[in-house]
C-alpha cells in the first residue's frame, strides 16, 4: 500500500500491554514502525527532542505514573509543532468523563483496551487505515469511539 512505514508511538507504563501492542502490529500487514515510552515524562522528553522523529499516530494511555495521559494531551495540543499529531487514547477506562474530557482536549480517537487479542489487532489496523485516509480534522464524534 505505501512505501514509508507509518511511525507509531505508544506511551504505556504496563509491560504486558506494550507486549500485546508490539505483537498486534507484527501481525498487521501495514508497514509500521512502533516505538514505546514508559510514562508521560518520558513521552514529553522524546517529543521535544529535536533529533527524534515525530510519530504519525500517538497512542496514549491515560493512567500513567509521574505524568498522566491527559496532562500530556493538553501539553501536546498547546505546542505548535506537535498539535498536528493524531492522538488515540488507549485506556482501560470507559467512563464518560474520560471520553468527554479527552475529546474536548483534542484527542482524535478513544480506544478502550479490548480483552481479546484478535479484536485488538482489528482496532489497531482500522486506526492506522483511517488515519491514512482522512485528515485528522475530518474525524467526528461518531468515529471517535472505535471500541466500547
Amino acid at each position: 500500500m505505501q512505501q514509508e512505514p507509518i511511525q507509531i508511538l505508544l506511551a504505556e507504563d504496563d509491560e504486558d500491554d506494550r507486549l500485546f501492542f508490539k505483537k498486534a502490529f507484527n501481525d498487521i500487514k501495514i508497514k509500521t514502525n512502533v516505538r514505546f515510552v514508559n510514562d508521560g515524562v518520558e513521552l514529553m522528553n522524546h517529543l521535544t527532542q529535536s533529533s527524534s522523529q515525530l510519530p504519525h499516530i500517538l497512542f496514549l494511555d491515560l493512567n500513567m505514573p509521574r505524568k498522566n495521559g491527559l496532562e500530556c494531551l493538553v501539553e501536546i495540543k498547546r505546542m505548535t509543532h506537535l498539535k498536528h499529531i493524531a492522538i488515540a487514547i488507549y485506556s482501560t477506562s470507559s467512563s464518560d468523563k474520560d471520553i468527554e474530557e479527552t475529546f474536548v482536549q483534542g484527542a482524535n480517537i478513544y480506544i478502550k483496551k479490548p480483552s481479546d487479542f484478535t479484536v485488538l489487532k482489528q482496532i489497531l489496523e482500522e486506526v492506522v487505515k483511517v488515519n491514512w485516509q482522512y485528515q485528522t480534522s475530518g474525524l467526528n464524534r461518531d468515529t471517535y469511539l472505535l471500541s466500547l
Binding site: 505483537k23 483496551k113 480483552s115 487479542f117
Partner: peptide
C-alpha cells in the same frame, strides 16, 4: 483484561 488477552493469544 490481561487474562482474557493472554487466553486469546
Amino acid at each position: 483484561r490481561k487474562i482474557q488477552t493472554f487466553i486469546s493469544l
